[in-house]
Computed example of a mutant assay.
Amino acid sequence: MDRLLHLDRTLDELDPPRWPSPGSDATRLVRKVHELRRVPLGELGPADLRTLISQQVALSYALPLAVRLLLEEPLLDAYFYEGDLLLAAVNVPASAWALFPDLGTQLRTVIRALPEAAVAGLPRGAAEELVRFVARPESLR
């Protein structure tokens, strides 16, 4: 969690190299991700973290910030629907979670405690994604 000590710094500073400005033909999503790399970590909101995590950008910084939020409110509606940040987090590659085994363990505990009714209210396939994350073999955690 020591990465959280750098909340006043940006991803461009912490995760080199700095990204150049996106091209004029870049999509809105590409422009958004480039913009988020220039925002201090402490100013990134849930929707920003969901975007970075979904695009697998600077996971070593975005993932701990997201988990900090998810431990308090696992089904947080970051932007699209209830639980969207959680689903983005559980779908990152196992290699990203390997950097934070304690955070993964804490998140698994929170997921196991979710009421069935709450999980049933998530989009189709979400329950299976959560089960897959919780059941991931120890060697891949």
Rank of each mutant, 00 (worst) to 15 (best):
Met1Ala: 15
Met1Ser: 11
Asp2Phe: 01
Asp2Lys: 09
His6Gly: 09
Leu7Asp: 14
Asp8Asn: 14
Leu11Met: 13
Leu11Glu: 03
Asp12Gly: 14
Asp15Glu: 11
Pro16Met: 11
Pro16Ile: 06
Pro17Met: 02
Trp19Leu: 10
Trp19Lys: 15
Ser21Glu: 13
Asp25Leu: 11
Asp25Met: 14
Ala26His: 07
Arg28Asn: 04
Leu29Thr: 12
Leu29Gln: 08
His34Trp: 15
Leu36Lys: 04
Pro40Asp: 12
Glu43Asp: 13
Leu44Ala: 03
Gly45Thr: 04
Gly45Phe: 03
Pro46Ala: 15
Leu49Gln: 01
Gln55Leu: 06
Val57Trp: 15
Ala58Ser: 12
Leu59Tyr: 15
Ser60Thr: 14
Tyr61Leu: 11
Ala62Cys: 10
Pro64Trp: 06
Ala66Asp: 11
Val67Gly: 00
Val67Lys: 03
Leu69Ser: 04
Leu71Gln: 11
Glu72Ala: 12
Glu72Arg: 14
Leu75Ala: 05
Tyr79Met: 15
Tyr79Val: 14
Tyr79Asp: 13
Phe80Arg: 13
Phe80Leu: 15
Phe80Met: 10
Phe80Asn: 13
Glu82Leu: 14
Glu82Gly: 14
Gly83Phe: 00
Gly83Cys: 15
Asp84Trp: 11
Leu85Cys: 04
Leu85Tyr: 02
Leu86Tyr: 09
Leu87Thr: 11
Ala88Arg: 01
Ala89Trp: 10
Asn91His: 02
Asn91Glu: 10
Val92Arg: 04
Ala94Arg: 07
Ser95Tyr: 11
Ala96His: 01
Trp97Leu: 03
Leu99Trp: 00
Asp102Tyr: 04
Leu103Glu: 02
Gly104Met: 08
Gln106Asp: 01
Arg108Asn: 01
Thr109Leu: 00
Thr109Pro: 01
Ile111Arg: 01
Ile111Lys: 06
Ile111Thr: 03
Arg112Gly: 02
Leu114Val: 06
Glu116Phe: 05
Ala117Pro: 02
Ala117Thr: 05
Ala117Glu: 10
Ala118Tyr: 02
Ala118Trp: 00
Ala118Phe: 01
Val119Ser: 03
Ala120Asp: 09
Gly121Ile: 02
Gly121Tyr: 00
Leu122Phe: 05
Arg124Gly: 07
Gly125Phe: 00
Leu130Asn: 03
Arg132Lys: 12
Phe133Ala: 00
Val134Cys: 10
Val134Lys: 13
Arg136Tyr: 08
Pro137Thr: 02
Pro137Ala: 09
Glu138Ile: 08
Leu140Thr: 09
Arg141Lys: 05
